[in-house]
Simulated scan of single mutants.
Amino acid sequence: MAKILVTNDDGIHSRGIKAAVEALQGLGEIYVVAPMFQRSASGRAMTIHRPLRAKRISMNGAKAAYALDGMPVDCVIFAMARFGDFDLAISGINLGENMSTEITVSGTASAAIEAATQEIPSIAISLEVNREKHKFGEGEEIDFSAAKYFLRKIATAVLKRGLPKGVDMLNVNVPYDANERTEIAFTRLARRMYRPSIEERIDPKGNPYYWIVGTQCPKEALELGTDMYVVKVERKVSVTPINIDMTARVNLNEIKRLLEL
């Protein structure tokens, strides 16, 4: 029987991770290791300057489940140390889309990337949300039915056939208004999703403090064939194949000549 790891960056109490476990029922033994707390935008951060604490919890549909007071990447490492190898790793279902080259900021995508570096076929799956307040909540009001449908469909195919050569993970984004009849499109990463800036505010004592904020790239600037165009304009499910080798595909002699070495 297949062994499936489920993790996320929204935390162990997110309805998204429970929806993922529900979607995967019958495909194998499911093990859940997820952060105790919200860890969005943690990227590939790893906890190495203090010990980790883990608490075993009960979760319907999981053979074993742990809440870890670390980052999503820590969860993958902990799961492999505790349970051994896995046949598939799922990160999500995330509250809010994870698209463009900025997936390296995402704890959801980074957990899948970490699993992929351990040679585990991996899927990061995120559900677009249409209200900002949902992105950092637990998803109480969100309908996960379409995301569950596509997760099960894609996970079943990967378990049966594996990933193509040169593909380490799949990054999946589901529009909030998707249903089972929504088309799937195979895409490449957009250049970027947000235009970040710093917002300065003043506390009651007159001292400045700062928030990193960002505005999403306008739809008219999106490039055809990218994950963002497919989700934001065409309203389709985006599936982007990811290779974790970030080496530029160029003739290395060109770099040698450029640097005059």
Rank of each mutant, 00 (worst) to 15 (best):
A2F: 10
I4C: 04
I4T: 02
L5G: 06
T7Y: 07
D9Q: 07
G11T: 03
H13E: 14
S14F: 05
G16T: 09
I17C: 11
I17R: 03
A19V: 05
V21C: 09
Q25I: 01
G26K: 02
L27D: 06
G28Q: 04
I30P: 01
V32G: 02
V33L: 12
A34D: 07
P35M: 08
P35L: 07
F37D: 15
F37K: 11
S40E: 14
S40M: 10
G43N: 07
R44H: 10
A45E: 12
T47E: 02
H49F: 14
H49Y: 12
H49E: 15
L52Q: 01
L52S: 00
R53M: 06
A54V: 13
S58Y: 11
N60I: 10
N60L: 12
K63M: 11
K63V: 15
A64P: 00
A65Q: 05
Y66Q: 03
A67Y: 02
L68V: 15
D69R: 00
D74G: 05
D74P: 01
V76Y: 03
V76H: 03
I77A: 13
A79Y: 04
M80E: 15
F83Q: 06
D85I: 00
F86Y: 10
F86D: 04
L88K: 04
N98I: 13
S100G: 08
T104D: 09
T104E: 10
G107H: 01
T108K: 00
A109Q: 01
S110P: 01
A111E: 06
A111T: 06
A112W: 03
A115V: 03
S122P: 02
S126N: 11
L127I: 08
E128A: 14
V129F: 07
E132K: 12
K133G: 02
F136W: 04
G137M: 02
E138W: 04
E141G: 03
D143L: 05
D143Q: 03
F144N: 03
F144M: 08
S145I: 01
A146I: 08
A147Y: 03
I154E: 06
A157H: 09
L159S: 05
K160Q: 14
R161I: 01
P164C: 04
K165R: 13
G166V: 09
V167N: 04
D168A: 10
V172P: 04
V172I: 15
V174N: 05
Y176A: 15
D177V: 09
E180G: 03
R181G: 09
E183C: 07
E183W: 00
I184T: 08
I184A: 04
A185L: 13
R188L: 11
R191C: 05
R191T: 14
R192N: 11
M193H: 08
Y194T: 09
P196M: 07
D203E: 05
P204Q: 06
K205Y: 12
G206L: 06
Y209W: 15
W211Q: 11
V213L: 10
V213K: 13
T215V: 14
Q216M: 13
C217M: 15
C217K: 12
P218H: 02
P218Q: 09
P218M: 06
E220G: 03
A221P: 00
G225E: 09
T226H: 06
Y229M: 10
V230W: 03
V230F: 05
E234Q: 14
K236M: 12
K236N: 12
T240V: 07
D245H: 07
T247Q: 10
R249K: 15
N251W: 00
E254T: 14
E254A: 12
K256F: 11
K256M: 12
L258G: 02
L258R: 11
L261D: 04
